[in-house]
């Protein structure tokens, strides 16, 4: 790890100010993605602004039917929250599927989505549920937030404050974990609200995406069989030693069918 200056502000405003002043600063949340890159010297940062003392960034609450989760809320807290489990059980299940117990005890919602790893789980839930990301200066729809491989709509000094999740009628997440890292090789989040169906896919491509062909088919008939004829083009998919593009495309269908089957 290279040397850096460490700050631990207690308000969002101070954190943003520190980031704006820093030459090359980053917020530090659970550190589960950031610290390994520093330790391996893959990244060098002038300043780390630790968000853990900012109480405004924590917590889970119900805001008139919308679930609001603070950026610094740990995966384990989301997974165990009675509120989340009753409002959107699939979201608790998504958090529960992340990494291992140690990672879930430290990793945060804000850190995960700001990092936007192509195989992270939360992006599928956010896009699948049509969530809204609230930052220190604006609100961003999930679909506009995840812009590319490890890229988001956030400005360099912009902080995720919370995420607002509308409640679906039914939702499910199915993940095919990478056998080594246990990140998602493919993860499919299916949500149904009234007649509207959203299908969000993580892991397969450079960034989470909505699967419009599947959404159309499921709007027509919300059954696993409706997905059978749909082939997902694999050309832009990720391919590596664990899963080729073809295999990922195949898994998208298998996971989507399983998600729908779980909601029958």
């Amino acid at each position: 790890m290279y040397d850096f200056d460490y700050h631990r502000p207690t308000t969002i405003a101070d954190a943003v100010a520190l980031l704006a002043q820093a030459e090359d600063g980053r917020p530090l949340a659970g550190g589960q993605s950031l610290i390994p890159t520093l330790k391996q010297r893959l990244a060098k940062r002038s300043d780390l602004v630790d968000l853990s003392a900012i109480t405004e960034l924590r917590g889970i609450r119900d805001d008139g039917g919308t679930l609001v989760i603070g950026a610094m809320t740990r995966h384990a807290e989301v997974a165990a929250s009675d509120l989340v489990r009753s409002a959107i059980p699939a979201l608790a299940a998504t958090a529960e599927s992340v990494g291992d117990a140690q990672v879930r005890n430290l990793g945060t919602l804000g850190g995960s989505i700001a990092n936007n790893d192509p195989s992270a789980d939360y992006p599928a839930a956010l896009v699948g549920l049509g969530a809204t990301i609230v930052t220190d200066r604006r609100s961003i729809a999930a679909e506009d937030f995840f812009t590319g491989l490890f890229e988001t709509a956030l400005a360099a000094d912009e902080l995720v404050v919370s995420v607002r999740f509308p409640r679906p009628d039914r939702a499910a997440y199915q993940k095919f974990p990478n056998p080594a890292s246990r990140y998602a090789v493919v993860g499919v989040f299916v949500a149904k609200t009234g007649n509207a169906v959203r299908v969000a896919v993580t892991g397969a491509g450079a960034v989470v995406f909505r699967h419009s062909a599947m959404e159309a088919a499921l709007t027509n008939s919300f059954t696993p069989a409706a997905l059978e004829p749909i082939e997902t083009p694999a050309d832009d998919f990720n391919g590596d030693i664990h899963a080729s593009q073809d295999y990922r495309a195949h898994l998208v269908k298998v996971m989507a069918k399983r998600a729908v089957a779980a909601l029958q």
Partner: peptide, 24 residues
């Protein structure tokens, strides 16, 4: 079922150089 040490045949780089890719 899990473990496999993989090198890139062209560059000779160890692809499975961490637990992200080497499956214990």
């Amino acid at each position: 079922l899990h473990e496999n040490c993989v090198y890139d045949p062209e560059s000779g780089q160890l692809i499975t150089g961490s637990y992200m890719d080497y499956c214990m």
